[in-house]
Protein backbone atom coordinates (compact mmCIF):
# COMPACT_ATOMS: atom_id res chain seq x y z
CA UNK A 1 0.00 0.00 0.00
CA UNK A 2 1.48 3.35 -0.94
CA UNK A 3 0.81 6.66 0.77
CA UNK A 4 -0.74 9.10 -1.66
CA UNK A 5 -1.54 11.92 0.75
CA UNK A 6 -0.24 12.84 4.16
CA UNK A 7 0.11 15.70 6.58
CA UNK A 8 3.29 17.74 6.11
CA UNK A 9 6.03 16.97 8.65
CA UNK A 10 6.13 20.63 9.59
CA UNK A 11 2.59 20.55 10.93
CA UNK A 12 1.89 19.10 14.36
CA UNK A 13 -0.91 16.63 15.15
CA UNK A 14 -2.88 19.34 16.94
CA UNK A 15 -6.37 19.96 15.58
CA UNK A 16 -6.62 23.38 13.95
CA UNK A 17 -8.83 25.76 15.91
CA UNK A 18 -9.87 27.94 12.97
CA UNK A 19 -13.54 28.43 12.07
CA UNK A 20 -15.16 26.16 9.48
CA UNK A 21 -14.53 27.51 5.99
CA UNK A 22 -11.62 29.74 7.01
CA UNK A 23 -8.63 29.39 4.68
CA UNK A 24 -6.00 29.78 7.45
CA UNK A 25 -5.79 25.97 7.52
CA UNK A 26 -4.92 25.80 3.83
CA UNK A 27 -2.31 28.53 4.23
CA UNK A 28 -0.77 26.76 7.24
CA UNK A 29 -0.47 23.67 5.12
CA UNK A 30 1.17 25.57 2.26
CA UNK A 31 3.76 27.06 4.62
CA UNK A 32 4.48 23.64 6.14
CA UNK A 33 4.79 22.08 2.68
CA UNK A 34 7.27 24.75 1.63
CA UNK A 35 9.35 24.08 4.75
CA UNK A 36 9.22 20.33 4.07
CA UNK A 37 10.04 20.76 0.38
CA UNK A 38 13.14 22.79 1.19
CA UNK A 39 14.13 20.29 3.90
CA UNK A 40 14.59 23.05 6.49
CA UNK A 41 12.19 22.01 9.26
CA UNK A 42 14.98 21.68 11.84
CA UNK A 43 16.45 25.03 10.85
CA UNK A 44 13.23 27.01 10.81
CA UNK A 45 12.05 29.39 13.53
CA UNK A 46 8.57 30.87 13.26
CA UNK A 47 6.95 33.92 14.83
CA UNK A 48 3.24 33.90 15.59
CA UNK A 49 1.16 37.10 15.65
CA UNK A 50 -1.75 38.37 17.68
CA UNK A 51 -4.89 37.60 15.75
CA UNK A 52 -6.61 34.40 14.66
CA UNK A 53 -3.21 32.80 14.08
CA UNK A 54 -2.08 33.56 17.64
CA UNK A 55 -1.92 29.80 18.29
CA UNK A 56 0.21 29.13 15.20
CA UNK A 57 2.88 27.83 17.60
CA UNK A 58 0.56 24.90 18.30
CA UNK A 59 0.34 23.99 14.62
CA UNK A 60 3.76 24.47 13.06
CA UNK A 61 6.18 21.73 14.07
CA UNK A 62 9.12 24.09 14.39
CA UNK A 63 10.52 26.26 17.19
CA UNK A 64 8.20 29.24 17.58
CA UNK A 65 7.96 32.60 19.32
CA UNK A 66 4.66 34.29 20.01
CA UNK A 67 4.95 38.05 19.43
CA UNK A 68 3.05 41.08 20.71
CA UNK A 69 0.42 42.57 18.38
CA UNK A 70 2.10 43.79 15.20
CA UNK A 71 5.64 43.22 16.45
CA UNK A 72 6.40 39.91 14.72
CA UNK A 73 8.80 41.47 12.17
CA UNK A 74 10.81 43.07 15.01
CA UNK A 75 10.88 39.77 16.92
CA UNK A 76 11.89 37.95 13.75
CA UNK A 77 14.64 40.54 13.22
CA UNK A 78 16.03 39.74 16.65
CA UNK A 79 15.92 36.00 15.93
CA UNK A 80 17.49 36.31 12.48
CA UNK A 81 20.31 38.58 13.71
CA UNK A 82 21.19 35.93 16.31
CA UNK A 83 20.77 33.04 13.85
CA UNK A 84 21.59 34.35 10.36
CA UNK A 85 21.89 30.76 9.12
CA UNK A 86 18.33 29.80 10.10
CA UNK A 87 15.08 30.24 8.18
CA UNK A 88 12.87 32.73 10.04
CA UNK A 89 9.28 33.51 9.15
CA UNK A 90 6.39 35.55 10.53
CA UNK A 91 2.76 34.62 10.03
CA UNK A 92 0.54 37.71 10.41
CA UNK A 93 -2.97 38.91 9.74
CA UNK A 94 -4.05 42.23 8.27
CA UNK A 95 -4.85 43.99 11.55
CA UNK A 96 -1.53 42.83 13.00
CA UNK A 97 0.60 43.69 9.98
CA UNK A 98 -1.16 46.54 8.20
CA UNK A 99 -2.49 48.48 11.19
CA UNK A 100 -0.69 48.29 14.51
CA UNK A 101 2.41 46.68 13.01
CA UNK A 102 2.85 48.92 9.97
CA UNK A 103 6.08 50.46 11.28
CA UNK A 104 7.61 47.08 12.09
CA UNK A 105 6.82 45.49 8.70
CA UNK A 106 7.92 48.53 6.69
CA UNK A 107 11.23 48.86 8.49
CA UNK A 108 11.96 45.13 8.43
CA UNK A 109 11.41 45.23 4.67
CA UNK A 110 13.39 48.46 4.27
CA UNK A 111 16.33 46.93 6.15
CA UNK A 112 16.14 43.94 3.85
CA UNK A 113 15.78 41.58 6.79
CA UNK A 114 16.29 38.10 5.43
CA UNK A 115 13.01 36.83 6.77
CA UNK A 116 9.77 35.67 5.14
CA UNK A 117 6.40 37.13 6.04
CA UNK A 118 3.18 35.28 5.33
CA UNK A 119 0.56 38.00 5.34
CA UNK A 120 -3.00 36.69 5.57
CA UNK A 121 -5.43 39.36 4.37
CA UNK A 122 -9.09 38.64 5.09
CA UNK A 123 -10.19 42.28 5.22
CA UNK A 124 -11.33 42.12 8.85
CA UNK A 125 -10.25 41.62 12.48
CA UNK A 126 -11.23 38.01 13.04
CA UNK A 127 -10.14 37.10 16.56
CA UNK A 128 -11.66 40.14 18.25
CA UNK A 129 -15.00 39.56 16.54
CA UNK A 130 -15.15 41.21 13.15
CA UNK A 131 -14.05 44.83 13.49
CA UNK A 132 -12.91 47.01 10.61
CA UNK A 133 -9.35 46.45 9.42
CA UNK A 134 -7.14 48.76 7.34
CA UNK A 135 -7.82 46.28 4.54
CA UNK A 136 -11.62 46.29 4.91
CA UNK A 137 -13.20 47.20 1.56
CA UNK A 138 -15.17 50.43 1.15
CA UNK A 139 -18.78 49.65 1.92
CA UNK A 140 -17.95 46.44 3.78
CA UNK A 141 -20.01 46.00 6.94
CA UNK A 142 -18.09 45.16 10.12
CA UNK A 143 -18.89 45.57 13.81
CA UNK A 144 -17.10 48.95 13.83
CA UNK A 145 -18.34 50.02 10.37
CA UNK A 146 -21.98 49.00 10.80
CA UNK A 147 -23.09 51.24 7.90
CA UNK A 148 -20.35 49.93 5.67
CA UNK A 149 -16.79 51.31 5.58
CA UNK A 150 -16.97 54.97 4.73
CA UNK A 151 -14.22 56.32 2.52
CA UNK A 152 -14.87 59.81 3.82
CA UNK A 153 -14.43 58.71 7.41
CA UNK A 154 -11.63 56.15 7.14
CA UNK A 155 -10.13 56.39 3.65
CA UNK A 156 -9.51 53.48 1.36
CA UNK A 157 -8.03 50.10 2.18
CA UNK A 158 -4.24 49.72 2.18
CA UNK A 159 -2.63 47.65 -0.56
CA UNK A 160 0.36 46.28 1.30
CA UNK A 161 2.08 44.29 -1.45
CA UNK A 162 2.23 47.34 -3.69
CA UNK A 163 3.80 49.45 -0.94
CA UNK A 164 6.23 46.77 0.27
CA UNK A 165 7.46 46.10 -3.25
CA UNK A 166 8.57 49.74 -3.53
CA UNK A 167 11.11 49.31 -0.75
CA UNK A 168 14.65 48.54 -1.85
CA UNK A 169 15.09 45.93 0.88
CA UNK A 170 12.26 43.79 -0.47
CA UNK A 171 13.51 40.99 -2.70
CA UNK A 172 10.22 39.21 -3.25
CA UNK A 173 6.60 40.32 -2.88
CA UNK A 174 3.57 38.58 -4.28
CA UNK A 175 -0.17 38.60 -3.73
CA UNK A 176 -1.97 35.28 -4.09
CA UNK A 177 -5.31 33.90 -3.01
CA UNK A 178 -6.59 30.73 -1.39
CA UNK A 179 -10.13 30.80 -2.77
CA UNK A 180 -9.92 27.92 -5.26
CA UNK A 181 -7.58 25.03 -6.08
CA UNK A 182 -5.91 26.79 -9.01
CA UNK A 183 -5.08 29.79 -6.87
CA UNK A 184 -4.01 27.59 -3.96
CA UNK A 185 -1.42 25.96 -6.25
CA UNK A 186 -0.17 29.43 -7.25
CA UNK A 187 -0.05 30.41 -3.59
CA UNK A 188 2.02 27.33 -2.85
CA UNK A 189 4.54 28.29 -5.53
CA UNK A 190 4.79 31.85 -4.22
CA UNK A 191 5.29 30.76 -0.61
CA UNK A 192 7.97 28.33 -1.62
CA UNK A 193 9.61 31.04 -3.70
CA UNK A 194 9.58 33.41 -0.74
CA UNK A 195 11.37 30.88 1.48
CA UNK A 196 13.87 30.18 -1.31
CA UNK A 197 14.49 33.90 -1.61
CA UNK A 198 15.29 34.06 2.08
CA UNK A 199 17.62 31.09 1.80
CA UNK A 200 19.36 32.74 -1.14
CA UNK A 201 19.99 35.82 1.02
CA UNK A 202 18.49 38.30 -1.46
CA UNK A 203 16.49 40.25 1.14
CA UNK A 204 13.04 40.52 2.62
CA UNK A 205 10.29 38.34 1.18
CA UNK A 206 6.53 38.50 1.67
CA UNK A 207 3.52 36.68 0.34
CA UNK A 208 0.13 38.29 0.84
CA UNK A 209 -2.60 35.65 0.77
CA UNK A 210 -6.22 36.73 0.30
CA UNK A 211 -8.22 34.70 2.76
CA UNK A 212 -11.79 34.20 3.93
CA UNK A 213 -13.60 34.94 7.18
CA UNK A 214 -17.06 33.40 6.73
CA UNK A 215 -17.86 33.84 10.43
CA UNK A 216 -17.32 37.58 10.57
CA UNK A 217 -18.29 38.28 6.99
CA UNK A 218 -21.65 36.61 7.79
CA UNK A 219 -21.42 34.24 4.83
CA UNK A 220 -21.35 30.55 4.17
CA UNK A 221 -17.89 29.19 3.36
CA UNK A 222 -18.83 28.93 -0.33
CA UNK A 223 -20.20 32.47 -0.43
CA UNK A 224 -17.00 33.65 1.26
CA UNK A 225 -14.76 31.97 -1.33
CA UNK A 226 -16.81 33.59 -4.08
CA UNK A 227 -16.62 36.99 -2.36
CA UNK A 228 -12.83 36.83 -2.43
CA UNK A 229 -12.99 36.36 -6.21
CA UNK A 230 -15.72 38.91 -6.92
CA UNK A 231 -14.89 41.65 -4.40
CA UNK A 232 -11.38 41.30 -3.00
CA UNK A 233 -9.37 40.30 -6.07
CA UNK A 234 -10.52 43.32 -8.13
CA UNK A 235 -9.26 45.70 -5.41
CA UNK A 236 -6.24 43.57 -4.51
CA UNK A 237 -4.82 42.44 -7.86
CA UNK A 238 -2.98 39.12 -7.72
CA UNK A 239 0.53 38.67 -9.02
CA UNK A 240 4.23 38.89 -8.32
CA UNK A 241 5.02 42.50 -7.45
CA UNK A 242 8.73 42.07 -7.10
CA UNK A 243 11.25 39.29 -7.59
CA UNK A 244 14.95 39.99 -7.17
CA UNK A 245 15.82 36.39 -6.34
CA UNK A 246 18.48 34.58 -8.31
CA UNK A 247 17.19 33.35 -11.63
CA UNK A 248 14.32 35.81 -11.66
CA UNK A 249 13.80 37.64 -14.92
Amino acid sequence: MSIVFSKPLSLTDNVLTYCPGCTHGIIHRLVAEAIDDLGVQSQTIGVAPVGCAVFAYNFFAVDMLQAAHGRAPAVATGVKRVHPDKIVFTYQGDGDLASIGMAEIMHAAARGEKITTIFVNNAIYGMTGGQMAPTTLVGQVTTTSPYGRSEELTGKPIRVSEIISQLDGTAYAARVSAHDPKHVMEAKKAIRKAFETQRGGAGFSMVEVLSTCPTNWGMTPIEALKWVATDMVPYYPLGVYKDLSKGAA
Binding site: L65, A74, V75, G78, V79, V82
Partner: peptide
Protein backbone atom coordinates in the same frame (compact mmCIF):
# COMPACT_ATOMS: atom_id res chain seq x y z
CA UNK B 1 10.68 43.35 20.46
CA UNK B 2 14.00 42.74 18.73
CA UNK B 3 15.34 42.09 22.22
CA UNK B 4 12.47 39.61 22.70
CA UNK B 5 13.43 37.79 19.49
CA UNK B 6 17.15 37.75 20.25
CA UNK B 7 16.67 36.66 23.86
CA UNK B 8 14.08 34.07 22.86
Amino acid sequence: NMVYGASG
